[in-house]
Design a protein around this nucleic acid. Sequence first.
DNA 1: TGTTGACTGTTATGATATAACGTTAGATAG
DNA 2: CTATCTAACGTTATATCATAACAGTCAACA
Lengths: 136, 136
Amino acid sequence: MRARENGVRLTPVRRRTLEILLEAHGALGAYDVLERLSAEGYGTQPPVAYRALNFLVENGFAHRIQRLNAFTACVHPARDHRAAFLICARCNSVTEACADSFTQAMIEAASAVGFQLERSTIEAVGLCSACAGKPA
Amino acid sequence: MRARENGVRLTPVRRRTLEILLEAHGALGAYDVLERLSAEGYGTQPPVAYRALNFLVENGFAHRIQRLNAFTACVHPARDHRAAFLICARCNSVTEACADSFTQAMIEAASAVGFQLERSTIEAVGLCSACAGKPA
DNA sequence: TGTTGACTGTTATGATATAACGTTAGATAG
DNA sequence: CTATCTAACGTTATATCATAACAGTCAACA
């Protein structure tokens, strides 16, 4: 496991936090996660949730969705990858897509203006297939 | 002017807010803007800044940078365009680049999973040319 | 078995953002 | 010109998101 390599562990709170994200269909706010954790006997204060979530993000188990101030489990936890998120403007559901093809184009475009790209997040807003079918 | 078309005006606060963004080299937080506005005799409370900033964003004069919880003047206010932001991890400077080429690729990739793309924001983190030269 | 470092939990606070309400002022129909 | 309408403004109050700092726990290991 990736976590172990750095002398770092997937502890109960962290594991449970990941499960909570996986059970949710869509992204969860840190305080939503905290509510569930504290109901199950873990700590009750914000840092408990933020620490677990940050751990998951740093170790590739989850992503942070800036636009929603929320977190979502990663669908490809094993591979190192560039992700793109499709956020439904109506129902806030989040679909993770693989963005390797266009991030390569971005890296080249960035280096044209002298910018060394490290990480990139693509967050796109639109309508998911479910909501696109419904009337406004 | 675009704003006029919708029965809506570029009032003094709004104009001044835009100037403040233009004068800043890089993105400003809403409270930074508010500080300047209130020092100049405009309102002193957060909604004053948020309303002006939201107006500018909705009318294409500025962009919101989610990752920084900040706002920046748009470099192509006239044209309808897709923007990509290159954010320096060291100095937080923001470079706006045109992303029309890869957003087209994104729109196609999204529609492959049934997603109708409306708007998209690309926020990439890396090192700007100035910081890339310096030692860590 | 004493030290170390990762982890957990807490208190307290900071930073970001919006709801709701009353007032002001420019546009326009009568 | 004046009544009315609505965009915009400013305020109070509060909601929401996030982190600093510190004390205690526990497993690993010299």
